[in-house]
C-alpha cells in the first residue's frame, strides 16, 4: 500500500480506531457481526472519529481563515463583475469564516459596497455549501474523488446560481436600507496570539453547537446501518427510483442541521445502496438552505428574490443529484 493510502486510512479514516472499537465491543461480550454489536461499534467509532476530526480541522481552518476577514474578501471582489468575479466569489466563500448568524450583515456589507447581486449570491451560496471542514470529513467517510467532486459541483452551483440571479435584474428587490448602509474600512489586524485564541474559541463554539446534531445523526446512521434491510431502503429511495433525488431535496431543505450531523446518515445510506447523487443532494439541501436562514434573509430582500434564490439553489442541487446518480459508478 502506498504511503499516502496508509496515511489516509490511519489518520483520516482512523481504521485503527475502528479496530480498537471492534475489540472493545467484543470485550464487553457483544458480537460485532450482530445487529446490536454492529450498531454499538458504528456509533462509538463514528462519534469519536467525527469529534476528533472536527476539533482538529476547525482549529487549523479557523486559524487559516483568520487571515481572510470579510472586509478583505469584499475589497478583493470590489469593482469586478462577470463570470470571473462569480467564480472568485464562490472560491472565497469556501475560505471566509462564516457563521449563519453573520450572513445577513455580510450580505448588507457586500451590497452597500456596490458589489453586484450575482457576485454576492455566488458567495452566499458557496459559503455554507462548500466548507473546508466538511470536505475533509467527506474524504474521511467516503474517499478523495467524492470529496473533490463535491467541491467542484458545489462551486458550480454557486457560480451558476449567482449568475442566474444576476441576469434576472432583481436589484430593486433589496431592502432600501441595505444600499445606504455605510461601508466600513479595513478589518483590524490580529496578532498571532489573537488568531490562536480565535481558532480555539471557534472549536469550542462549533462543538457546543453541533454535538446534538452529530449524536442524532450518528444514531440514525447506526440504526440504518444495522436495523433496516437494504431491500427496504432501496425500495424507498434506491438509485433506480426517479423520485429519490427530489425527495431527498424536499426533506433536506427545511431541515436545520449541520453537515457534520448529516454525514453519518449519508454514510449509512450509501452503504445500503442509495445513490451517491441522492445522498449528496440531501447533504447540500440541508446545508445550503434552511428555514432559519431563509427567514433571516427575508428581512433584507423582498419575497420574489427570496423565492428566486431558493428556486435556483434547489434546481442546482436537483441537477447535481441526478448527474451524480448517473455517473456514480466512476466513484464507488
Amino acid at each position: 500500500m502506498s504511503v499516502f493510502g496508509w496515511m489516509n486510512d490511519q489518520i483520516l479514516r482512523m481504521v485503527w480506531l475502528n479496530d480498537l472499537v471492534e475489540n472493545g465491543v467484543r470485550a464487553v461480550g457483544l458480537d460485532p457481526a450482530s445487529r446490536l454489536g454492529g450498531s454499538v461499534q458504528f456509533f462509538v467509532y463514528d462519534v469519536i472519529k467525527i469529534f476528533a476530526l472536527l476539533s482538529v480541522l476547525i482549529f487549523v481552518i479557523s486559524w487559516a481563515q483568520s487571515h481572510s476577514p470579510p472586509e478583505r474578501t469584499r475589497a478583493l471582489l470590489g469593482g469586478r463583475s462577470g463570470l470571473g468575479a462569480n467564480t472568485m466569489a464562490a472560491l472565497l466563500g469556501t475560505l471566509t469564516p462564516f457563521c449563519s448568524c453573520s450572513s445577513i450583515p455580510l450580505f448588507i456589507g457586500f451590497t452597500a459596497a456596490g458589489l453586484p447581486l450575482s457576485v454576492t449570491f455566488s458567495f452566499l451560496i458557496s459559503s455554507p455549501l462548500v466548507d473546508l471542514a466538511s470536505v475533509i470529513l467527506l474524504a474521511s467517510i467516503f474517499n478523495w474523488p467524492i470529496a473533490l467532486a463535491y467541491v467542484a459541483v458545489g462551486l458550480v452551483v454557486a457560480v451558476v446560481g449567482g449568475t442566474v440571479i444576476g441576469r434576472l435584474g432583481m436589484e430593486d428587490q433589496v431592502a432600501a436600507f441595505v444600499r445606504t448602509a455605510p461601508v466600513s474600512g479595513e478589518a483590524e489586524r490580529l496578532t498571532q496570539r489573537e488568531r490562536l485564541a480565535y481558532a480555539r474559541d471557534q472549536v469550542a463554539e462549533i462543538v457546543r453547537r453541533v454535538w446534538p446534531y452529530v449524536l442524532i445523526g450518528v444514531g440514525i446512521g447506526a440504526a440504518i446501518h444495522n436495523w433496516i434491510p437494504a431491500e427496504v431502503v432501496s425500495a424507498l429511495i434506491g438509485q433506480d427510483k426517479w423520485w429519490s433525488v427530489p425527495l431527498a431535496v424536499l426533506v433536506g431543505i427545511p431541515m436545520y442541521a449541520d453537515i457534520f450531523g448529516t454525514l453519518p446518515i449519508a454514510e449509512a445510506l450509501v452503504g445500503k445502496g442509495v445513490g451517491l447523487g441522492t445522498v449528496l443532494a440531501f447533504m447540500m439541501a440541508v446545508t445550503a438552505l434552511s428555514l432559519p436562514s431563509l427567514i433571516l434573509l427575508r428581512r433584507v430582500v423582498r419575497l420574489p428574490l427570496l423565492v428566486t434564490f431558493t428556486g435556483v439553489v434547489t434546481a442546482g442541487i436537483l441537477s447535481i443529484g441526478l448527474i451524480f446518480n448517473a455517473i456514480s459508478n466512476w466513484f464507488i
Partner: peptide, 13 residues
Amino acid sequence: DFAEIAAYGVMST
C-alpha cells in the same frame, strides 16, 4: 434590527 446594525457598517457580528 438589521437596519440599525447595518447603519454601523459592521460586517461580522
